[in-house]
Nucleic acid binder design. Structure first.
Lengths: 189, 189
DNA sequence: CAGAAAAAATAACATAGGTTAAGAAAAGCG
DNA sequence: CGCTTTTCTTAACCTATGTTATTTTTTCTG
């Protein structure tokens, strides 16, 4: 079943009885997307937190020169969204799209708020997730200041071991913040 | 009273009755530190989340060449800590010290866990904090990739308006990730 | 499978920011 | 208040990474 991967993930942090599982799953909706399909555009409001059941998504910024800067990859088992827009329900700056065909579970902001009220231990679950994610972005902020491109490439490989040989160099370059030309040169040097 | 600033901050997000306030405050300890005093060294375990009542703290990394990279400034009303070490209770990589004499409220990891059990709405409070902090570090990660030093300086000024003319250029340089020499040149160009 | 589109490689040249060094100004401290 | 230490400024030179352009290779799609 679609929901098993997510329920297993949740079970690592909080215990849900059958009734709670039912109620939680009732708040979810399944979505299938094709490769390259967009789920969020700059200026849009992100109304859903998205859990990747299969496939791979990414979130990125686009600058005025058309360069992409990838904030996150979301392979199987990861959550993704524009946290800023999701929290505030204001228009955000991120794009989110699918790098492969993918199957998602969505929970709307509205349902998420209901969930927190009805089953407060989800505050605990999402606090743990937010804290871990926070640590990861704190590290990346510092890495992006103090490490060379080659070192950032190394960190990318550690963070996404399953994606290292799956993604194009263009995607990896946009994640570590160099041009594809430079990444190519670097990998051959 | 020392605790008012923190209680006011909490009151913005959750409602505590008098008894809950009492119990919460009983978990806190007051600490006064002098300028330049360290609260955490690399390799140490961060046992306390720290709330700044007055003064200013900072957290930073030190690289093998002795360069500092500042992760966060914490003026009055901010929380600070080594999130990684605090969550895992493993040795961390951050240094934390005082940029001015400062007065802090500490809550130990142990008491924090008790607090979550006894007054579960603190899960909500710290979830909100973690989420906001997450958004801020997500933004900084991307800024550190895509913005020039001058643009990062601009973001620093927006993020810490009260510190812009308080901190030395050396501190600001270590936050935006350039050498003090380059920052000086940049500000005079 | 063929043609088109996207990605990767390579190379010459350009630039933001780093390095080193030295002096000037400011801040800390006895 | 004077001495010491730290910070700031300036400038010449250096390096990692960007830019532009071209060719080759790979992937997509009918």
């Amino acid at each position: 079943m679609n929901h098993d991967l997510l329920l297993a993930n949740i079970a690592k942090h909080i215990q849900l009885d059958e009734d709670e599982k039912q109620r939680f799953c009732a708040y979810l909706q399944v979505k299938k997307v094709k490769k390259k399909q967009h789920l969020l555009l700059e200026g849009g409001v992100n109304r859903f937190a998205m859990f990747v059941v299969s496939g791979c998504l990414r979130s990125y910024h686009l600058d005025e020169n058309g360069f992409q800067y990838i904030q996150q990859f979301a392979p199987e088992g990861w959550w993704i969204g524009d946290m800023y827009s999701l929290i505030t329900q204001e228009p955000g700056h991120l794009y989110i799209d699918a790098l492969t065909d993918a199957e998602l579970l969505l929970i709307s902001k509205v349902n998420l708020e209901k969930l927190y009220k009805e089953i407060p231990k989800f505050n605990f679950y999402f606090r743990i997730l937010a804290e871990r994610s926070l640590v990861s972005y704190q590290e990346r902020s510092m890495e992006n200041l103090r490490l060379s491109a080659k070192e950032r490439y190394g960190k990318f490989c550690l963070r996404y071991p399953t994606l290292t040989d799956l993604l194009s160099q263009k995607q990896i370059a946009a994640y570590i913040g160099v041009t594809p030309e430079f990444l190519s040169k670097m990998l051959h040097a």
